[in-house]
Design a protein around this nucleic acid. Structure first.
Length: 486
RNA sequence: GGCGCGUUCGUCUAGAGGCCUAGGAUAACAGAUUUUCAUUCUGUAGAUCGCGGGUUCGAAUCCCGCACGCGCUACCA
């Protein structure tokens, strides 16, 4: 298929919030399409009626857009090879199901789940590989009639062609060979007349002219079955590439219960930037040929560099330490107005401000290089918006005394009362001169003022805070500190 | 149980027989700048390349075996 147009896809099932692993697969597919001038398609695999919801479908699309992974074809623009929701493609699957049945490549199976379970259990006890016995392969008309009269609804089972091994080249993992004798006939249409995942998948990939199926390694073992299906249906077989999994720190599979896996709930809403997510995610499995000394990559950079030959085969443990670094980095790089805009929701939610105002530009500027996540803006800046409460001892810096601190504060208050220029440079000269005059270290003067203004052991610098609060508020907070020490 | 995939610093990784006394990033630690925190800069520590055999003058790199992890083995996707 390689001479045709490059078309990749992501096919999430809306049975949960957009998963971090799906995001990575989407990213790699998107990058591959962009890099080689192809198309990227979004398809909703919502055949599991019981678990699929519209809320999740929306979440998936929102998160993809948020990450910057736009798609050329998808549920809302179904013109070309749509519809792009499997729930709307029932007739297509039925057509192919009929084809299999007519050509006797599949058969109706009336076995109940209980019967299948029992059969499997027996095989396990005998240490045989569990696989379907094929007992419905050659049912007589009488038997079929009997099952129908019982009210049993048949599923459609695909007849495995066991004649020869299935070989294919995985573009990441390499040459692959499977023995179909081990498979057993599998279900293609469920008894509710909905297609099983493998069946719907190969049909859609083919009908949507997907040239490369890049997906998680958990699908690697399914691939030979889909190839068999494609052959039986006389459909073209796409290229395949299987991405290794991302795991927990204990090397088990990421789970919804134990781990932060929801892009929207655990990352976007917690204050991570899409730029950081992309940069972090792409490095889980991909590393550039020409390594740079840093590892900063934008989506734009990546569309020029990404290739499958640089994708690794081994699984990666999902550890957000490095994500935090990237997040801090991109926050520092961000234009101030943009940062203020993105911090606003957190400030509003914490009730620190009522509406957008000019002040937050200054506020954000003071903590920009201290933030790892946008959500931290709250704890970093709360003292700028409200009265503060802190223990008096905090005013006294290490290796000094209450008396010295009090003296420093009182003398500072005096010069700050006389001073009108609260700009950084002016204040710097003023307070250092005061320190020299009193025989104090700069720290003995500056620490207590900073604490008086912020109430925190760590905060932006003294001069910046004086400038931020202005004369009246600064003096008021310093006076309060003096009273606390008396 | 069977089949498949994988195994290099805590973590993400580079590495395709000699360039490896194993490189980078991050995290950790230390120092410099500094009133604190953060930023920035510099440095330190950190992998006997899962284990055991082989091939070779020479192996993280090739071959075989084993161990461990993960996946599939569903009318879930």
């Amino acid at each position: 298929m390689s001479e045709e147009e490059i078309r990749t896809r992501i096919a999430p099932s809306p049975t949960g919030y957009f998963h971090i692993g799906t995001a990575r697969a989407a990213l790699f597919n998107w990058l591959y399409a962009k890099r080689f001038g192809g198309k990227f398609i979004l398809r909703m695999e919502d055949t599991d009626k019981a678990r699929s919801t519209e809320e999740y479908a929306i979440d998936i699309m929102e998160c993809m857009s948020w990450l910057g992974l736009d798609w050329d074809e998808g549920p809302e623009n179904p013109d070309l090879y749509g519809p792009y929701r499997q729930s709307e493609r029932a007739e297509i699957y039925q057509k192919y199901a009929k084809q299999l049945l007519d050509e006797r490549l599949a058969y109706k199976c009336y076995c109940t789940p209980d019967e299948l379970e029992a059969e499997k259990k027996l095989q396990m006890e005998r240490h045989e590989p569990p696989k379907y016995s094929g007992r419905c392969r050659n049912l007589s008309p009488e038997q079929i009639l009997a099952f129908e009269n019982e009210g049993r609804k048949p599923a459609l089972r695909f007849k495995i062609d066991e004649s020869s091994p299935i070989k294919f080249k995985d573009l990441i993992k390499g040459e692959m060979e499977f023995d179909p004798k081990l498979f057993g006939d599998f279900i293609v249409m469920k008894s509710d007349n909905l297609p099983a995942f493998m069946f719907a998948g190969i049909i859609d990939d083919s009908e949507m002219k997907i040239s490369l199926v890049m997906r998680g390694e958990d699908h690697l073992s399914n691939t030979p079955r889909q190839i068999l299906l494609a052959k039986a249906l006389d459909l073209p077989i796409p290229d395949y590439a299987h991405l290794s999994m991302i795991l927990n720190s204990d090397k088990t599979k990421m789970s919804k219960r134990k781990n932060p896996v929801s892009v929207s709930k655990d990352f976007r809403d917690k204050g991570y930037l899409p730029e950081a997510m992309i940069n972090f995610l792409v490095l889980l499995g991909w590393s550039p040929k020409e390594g740079k000394s840093d590892e900063i990559y934008s989506l734009d950079d990546l569309t020029k560099e990404f290739d499958l030959s640089e994708v690794g085969k081994s699984p990666a443990i999902f550890d957000t330490t490095k994500l935090d670094f990237f997040n801090g980095y991109y926050i520092r790089q961000m234009e101030l107005g943009e940062l203020a805009k993105r911090c606003l929701p957190y400030l509003l939610a914490a009730d620190l401000i009522k509406k957008e105002d000019e002040k937050i530009l200054k506020v954000v500027a003071l903590v920009q290089e201290r933030m790892k996540k946008l959500s931290e803006v709250v704890e970093l800046t709360d003292f700028m918006f409200k009265e503060i409460d802190y223990p008096a001892e905090l005013l006294i810096t290490k290796g000094t005394t209450k008396e010295i601190t009090l003296k420093a504060l009182e003398e500072s208050a005096k010069v700050l009362t006389d001073e009108t220029d609260y700009s950084r440079d002016s204040l710097d000269g003023l307070l250092r001169a005061l320190a020299t005059k009193l025989g104090f270290t700069a720290g003995q003067i500056l620490w207590p003022i900073r604490v008086a203004l912020s109430g925190k052991p760590a905060s932006p610098g003294t001069f910046e805070l004086l400038d931020f609060f202005g004369k009246d508020e600064s003096l008021s907070r310093i006076k309060k500190a003096i009273d606390m020490l008396k």
